[in-house]
Design a protein around this nucleic acid. Structure first.
Length: 267
DNA sequence: ATTCTCACA
DNA sequence: TGTGAGAA
C-alpha cells in the first residue's frame, strides 16, 4: 500500500469540513462516539477515520436518532443498513401522506374559491383520513409484534398464548379498564418516582389482574412475547412511527416492578 | 485559533 | 443535545 501520509485536522477545520461546531465535536467525544488523536500540545487531531465516522454520526443525527442509539450503530454496518432502509421507508410513507394532504387542501380551496362553504360531511372526511391513518399505524404495530413472536416461537405455543391474551383483553369491559389504567399509569410516570407508594400500589393492582396469565404461561413463552414487544417498539421508534401508547410508561412500570422485586416486596 | 469546566435551555 | 461564558 502506498505511503499516503495521514492528514490531520484541528477541531475548527474538522468542524467546518463536516458541518458542525467544535462544541458538537466535543459532545460527540464526551459521549464516546468519536475520539480524536491528541497532539503533544493536547490539541485534538482528526484523521480520515475520525472524519468518516463523523459523517456517519451526522447523517444519523439528521435522521433524528439520539446519540445513544447512534453509538450503538456506528461501526455496525448490518444495523446501519437496516436503519437506513427503515428511515427511507418512513420518509417515503411521509411523502405519500403529505401528497394526500395537499390534494385534500387543494380540493377544499377550490370549493371555497367557488363560493361554497365546506360542509360538515367534508370536514368529517378530513378527520376520517387522519383517524384511518392512526388505526393503520396500530394495526401495523400489532402485525409486526405478532410476526416477531411467531419468528421466535418454534412450538407455536407462544402465539396461541398471545392469541388468548388478546382475545381476553379485547372484551369491551377490559378495554375500558385498560384505557383507565393507561391514563393512571401515565400520570404516575409523569410524577417520575419509581419508588412512590402510588406507583407500587399500581403495580400490585396490575399484577393481580394479570396473575392468572403469568401463572398459566410458561416462562419461555413470556420471554418470547416480551422480546417481541421490545423489538417491535424499537423498530417503530427507529422509523419514528407514532404508537398509540407510550412505551416509556410501560418501561417506567417495568422499573417500578424491578425495584420491588429487588427489595423482595414482590413474590 | 485551542484547552477546560460550569451553568443553562 | 448542544451552547455561551470565562479563565488559561
Amino acid at each position: 500500500m502506498g505511503g499516503e501520509k495521514e492528514q490531520w485536522f484541528g477541531p475548527g477545520e474538522t468542524a467546518r469540513r463536516v458541518g458542525v461546531t467544535t462544541k458538537a465535536l466535543r459532545v460527540y467525544e464526551r459521549e464516546g462516539l468519536v475520539v480524536p488523536h491528541r497532539a503533544e500540545s493536547r490539541w485534538r487531531l482528526y484523521g480520515s477515520a475520525q472524519i468518516a465516522r463523523l459523517h456517519q454520526i451526522i447523517v444519523l443525527r439528521d435522521l433524528g436518532l439520539s446519540l445513544k442509539s447512534i453509538k450503538k450503530l456506528v461501526g455496525d454496518h448490518s444495523r446501519l443498513r437496516e436503519i437506513l432502509r427503515l428511515q427511507r421507508e418512513t420518509l417515503e410513507s411521509q411523502e405519500h401522506k403529505i401528497r394526500r394532504a395537499i390534494t385534500l387542501i387543494e380540493r377544499a380551496q377550490r370549493q371555497l374559491d367557488e363560493g361554497r362553504d365546506l360542509s360538515l360531511g367534508d370536514l368529517e372526511n378530513l378527520t376520517k383520513e387522519t383517524v384511518m391513518q392512526q388505526s393503520t399505524d396500530n394495526k401495523k404495530f400489532a402485525a409486526r409484534f405478532e410476526a416477531l413472536i411467531a419468528e421466535q416461537d418454534l412450538t407455536g405455543h407462544a402465539s396461541r398464548t398471545f392469541d388468548g391474551i388478546k382475545k381476553e383483553y379485547s372484551a369491551d369491559a377490559h378495554k375500558a379498564a385498560l384505557t383507565a389504567m393507561m391514563a393512571e399509569a401515565s400520570q404516575l410516570k409523569e410524577a417520575g418516582d419509581v419508588n412512590s407508594e402510588a406507583a407500587k400500589e399500581f403495580v400490585r393492582r396490575m399484577r393481580s389482574r394479570t396473575a392468572d396469565i403469568r401463572r398459566s404461561t410458561p416462562q419461555a413463552e413470556q420471554e418470547i412475547i416480551r422480546n417481541a414487544y421490545s423489538k417491535a417498539v424499537a423498530e417503530a421508534q427507529a422509523r419514528s412511527e407514532p404508537l398509540s401508547f407510550d412505551p416509556a410508561v410501560l418501561e417506567f412500570f417495568r422499573q417500578v416492578a424491578q425495584g420491588m422485586k429487588e427489595r423482595g416486596e414482590l413474590d
